[in-house]
């Protein structure tokens, strides 16, 4: 409870938080219901009285510097992904600067792949990415399509525990649905988001899923991810606020429905794997 009181104290001092979200290529990378992630962040901010704004930046639109605290980059169909990939190269420097100065980013599937060094198609063609993540993806004939359950990386667990404003965090695992044929391999120094408990994850071979670079996260978790993983949603919100306000304590929300959705999905995943 001490955390809540501190959070309220901050507000009493007259400080109002605000958070600016940038949704990258929402018109082209919108295929797998990833928009729920944006809805979850907005909902959870508004419930707490955090001023939240959302801007959409797509092909041929410049990425303005020094505005955004949190980026979201979802998955799309192959054709859209190649159009986006080309445009992203032009935004690479600005986006990297954002991440290096502490902005948060969540990327999923196609978005995650485009932030890596390159994507090599089944036919051997190399499509360059922007190399934010020291990783690469190789096209395969296996479509990895199933529920995906992971346990978050150890250091991330601690951070999620401290960001989620409830004394009894039911779980630090993440549950979602993966649908990809590209196999992602991480560079030696790049940390995964977590380890696979059920499903394929990055490549179906080394039990890793996703990647972490500073406050940028990549993964294959559709679902949408954040609504039924409210601890990770709050962790991202906290990280995005931290850049401007230092460590923050979020007010707790009633997440019973979200955790029911989480637990049921975990139960179905475990039962079928």
């Amino acid at each position: 409870m001490a955390q809540t009181v501190e959070g309220l104290n901050l507000k009493l001092k007259g400080q109002k938080f605000s958070l600016n979200i940038c949704h990258l290529y929402p018109d082209l990378m919108d295929t797998y219901g990833d928009k729920g992630n944006i809805l979850a962040i907005i909902y959870r901010c508004q419930k707490r009285g955090i001023d939240v704004s959302l801007e959409e930046v797509s092909v041929n639109q410049p990425l303005t510097t020094n505005i955004y605290d949190l980026f979201f980059f979802g998955g799309g169909q192959d054709q859209a992904q190649s159009i986006v990939g080309e445009d992203l190269l032009k935004k690479s420097d600005v986006l990297k600067k954002y991440i290096d100065s502490g902005s948060a980013l969540l990327s999923i599937c196609g978005g995650y792949q485009l932030l890596q060094k390159y994507f090599q198609t089944k036919e051997g063609q190399k499509i360059p990415g922007i190399g934010l993540f020291d990783a690469y993806t190789i096209g395969s004939n296996d479509r990895m399509i199933q529920n995906l359950l992971i346990e978050t990386d150890g250091s991330l667990q601690t951070q999620i525990e401290s960001a989620y404003p409830s004394n009894d965090l039911p779980s630090t695992s993440l549950i979602g649905f993966e649908n990809h044929s590209g196999k992602t391999y991480l560079g030696k120094s790049l940390k995964p988001l977590g380890s696979v408990l059920a499903g394929s994850g990055n490549n179906g071979e080394d039990s890793t899923e996703g990647a972490i670079y500073k406050n940028a996260f990549g993964c294959y978790l559709h679902g949408s991810l954040l609504p039924k993983n409210p601890h990770f949603a709050d962790f991202l919100i906290a990280k995005a606020l931290e850049k401007n306000y230092g460590p923050v304590n979020l007010e707790p929300l009633d997440d019973e429905i979200e955790w029911q959705a989480h637990n049921k999905a975990v139960e179905l995943t475990r039962a079928s794997s």
Partner: peptide, 24 residues
């Protein structure tokens, strides 16, 4: 089977929702 996923979706769409009205 995914009643709670649906409940979460509709909660985030600002429906007036009671968890007592969710039945698997």
């Amino acid at each position: 089977t995914r009643a709670w996923d649906m409940a979460t979706r509709l909660k985030y769409a600002n429906f007036n929702l009671s968890k007592n009205n969710v039945y698997e």
